[in-house]
Design a binder for these strands. Structure first.
Lengths: 203, 203
DNA sequence: AGCCAAACGGAGAGTCTCTCCGTATCGTAC
DNA sequence: GTACGATACGGAGAGACTCTCCGTTTGGCT
């Protein structure tokens, strides 16, 4: 409300110790998630970061917000990559370029979701409340871009929505989260991609 | 170990009050799960059933076991249906019979998983430890039967395993568990079925 | 009717989430 | 350099949950 919006919002008027603690918390959360999955104890994360529980909750009122903060970097990387892939595919003369790009990006998305032990999936499943919404939207936009291009190039069926596609891939990440077969997710993604591809036969 | 195995195991030598309490617990759990999902409080379930927490834990040492007990009936029904569908499909002259049967059964499976707010999915994801394993196997066998038949009739690609198929459908149930779009799961299942179908093109 | 193995129930230990508020610290203005 | 107000911190603690232990009760058999 009263905060001045000076363009790029250089300094948020946040005290340096607050900023430092925030970073420590995110780092601690990343470690904890890596070890215990998205259900990691918030108390433990605070302890690890060397701050009190109160501090954690002041910075991240909900579990989702902390999750979002941890994933934001990765998500932004992922979406940046989508833009790159998309541009390359649009420029390429090969008619399967968009299809390949979509496949590659979804593979990256799946890896992302799995590396985080379903964190990404957990996030996608959360109510789009709070801050999670912009990450969700970011991914959705990236997927929409990739898919639309493939549809324009005629390699993807047009009755599939980006949201559907993400649901399927998220589902793969979730249902294989505890599995031990490392090749399974890729195999399943291949199946899904085949389903999206077919430009011919339609229901 | 010391228990006599008298054929069909008529009476387990279980006291009648124990048996009654067990049934009450399962019933209470079903209600609680319907309201609060698989994370429902075990204390609350015990209270609802009118027994102490200790009694609950004696009957069901782990959360999974209670879950399994609640689902077992439904799972058995589901698998029985698989057998029926399979026999009908095997007898039918139409060459898409097995395909239709598989589709119908997977639809039922998905509905089952969703009705239980991801209970089924949650169960599938659990470690196959404890008693959960036989339910898991039951479903896997049913899926294998349906799929094999479709493969024999040539309507399903042969490089898909029953486990893969179940993973995908389970994934749909999980990733749409919190969604509000009621048509989405069916749409996604349609996609997966299309992917499994194609007898032509192969990677 | 009486016995005892089986089963019960609930107190309570340990853990987790989340809040509240007295205290400490930062940044600034002088 | 110091003093002051806003900002942020930390941790005690309330409330809820999981799971255990053990004294008490009860069903089934003789």
């Amino acid at each position: 409300m009263t905060a001045p919006q000076d363009g790029t919002a250089v300094a948020r008027r946040q005290r340096t110790d607050a900023r430092r603690n925030r970073e420590r918390l995110v780092e601690a959360a990343r470690e904890a998630y890596a070890e215990a999955g998205p259900e990691a104890s918030l108390n433990e994360i605070a302890r690890r970061a060397g701050v009190g529980p109160g501090t954690l909750y002041r910075h991240f009122p909900t579990r989702t917000e902390l999750l979002t903060a941890v994933l934001r970097n990765r998500i932004e990387t992922l979406c940046t990559r989508a833009v790159t892939l998309q541009e390359a595919a649009a420029a390429a003369a090969v008619h399967t370029a968009a299809d390949d790009a979509l496949a590659e990006w979804l593979r990256a998305f799946l890896a992302h979701a799995r590396v985080n032990q379903g964190l990404g999936g957990a996030l996608m499943l959360e109510e789009p409340a709070a801050l999670g919404i912009d990450c969700h939207q970011l991914i959705l936009d990236a997927a929409a871009g990739m898919l639309t291009l493939a549809q324009r190039q005629g390699t993807a069926r047009t009755d599939v929505s980006p949201a559907d596609l993400l649901r399927l891939v998220t589902g793969i990440a979730l249902s294989t989260a505890r599995g031990d077969d490392l090749e399974e997710p890729d195999r399943l993604l291949g199946l899904v991609l085949d389903a999206v591809r077919r430009p011919d036969r339609r229901a």
